[in-house]
Amino acid sequence: MTKNKADNISKFVSEVMRALEGRDSVTIAELTENLEADLRERQEEEGDAFQLGDSKVFAAELLQGAGLSGGINTASRLQRFVSEILWNIWSAISAIRPAWWVFRGLMAYSAIWFILLKQSKSVPGSPVEWLAFLGLMFASVQIGRANLKQWWARLPLAALNVLALLVGMFWVNDIVNVRNDYSRLKSFSESNLLIYQGQPVTFAFAYDKNGVPLPMTSLKTAGGNLMFAQPTEDALSPALEALKGKSLTEANWALAKMNVTASETLYESVPAEPKDRVLRVQKVSDGNGGWVVVLIVAN
């Protein structure tokens, strides 16, 4: 086929698509899919006898054959623009459908595991579990590829998809929680904080056998490593000043990092300030020779 004839076919297909403008993009794509290849094939078979004809008549015949009412190219520019955007969104969604089929299989495995054994599990362990896992994934992909059209098949499938989406939300939430826990533990392990049952210790007092508080400035391990120390007042002052204007969470976190173990929070009603904003920082005696940092926070 000469380049000129090939160009004519490309131009003809473009004209047909233009004549179909106003239809939704999915319809246009379905009606003109492989059209250029078909016309080229026909051109090669018929040679010089082949005639392309009128693109508008061709487009009208396409619509009539497809049982679509209305004429050609009647949509406004806005409708065509919206249609194009929808088509692009649909194309993007269609492109990731196989990934969804695999994910749906994974969710089916997680859901069945949870229903049968009341346990959360997403990665198989034994060969039988792997078999079930791969079987469900294969089934999900096959169902997706089947592209079911009948309503009685699509209805339960839609319900299953919604179910998979819900399970997926819990699944993602679990992953996020695990990641957050891991980040917190990592942060704790890298800090000088004293941790008890997963939480930073903000108060630590030592007592003798009679229950009398013992003066204490630091805690050390049996090997002599410092676990916990009261900061000196001189070093603390500028750092405490810097807490003003921070949120309560940020301030508490900063105090924990400074190894300040004794702190209290007082709330003060200041409508002009955002809630939980640190307004002032004070140091007051605890009555045992130590002191407590008091955060005055907007309520």
């Binding site: 379905e30 009606l31 059209l35 078909d38 026909r42 061709f58 487009a59 015949e61 396409l62 619509l63 009539q64 054959g65 497809a66 049982g67 679509l68 089947a146 592209n147 059209k149 009948q150």
Partner: peptide, 21 residues
């Protein structure tokens, strides 16, 4: 019957759930 009519018919039959692709 024109090519276009057949292509349209195919699309309609497919949309009607009589064909798979």
């Amino acid at each position: 019957i024109g090519d276009a009519t057949v292509y349209g018919t195919l699309r309609r039959l497919y949309a009607g759930g009589l064909l798979r692709t």
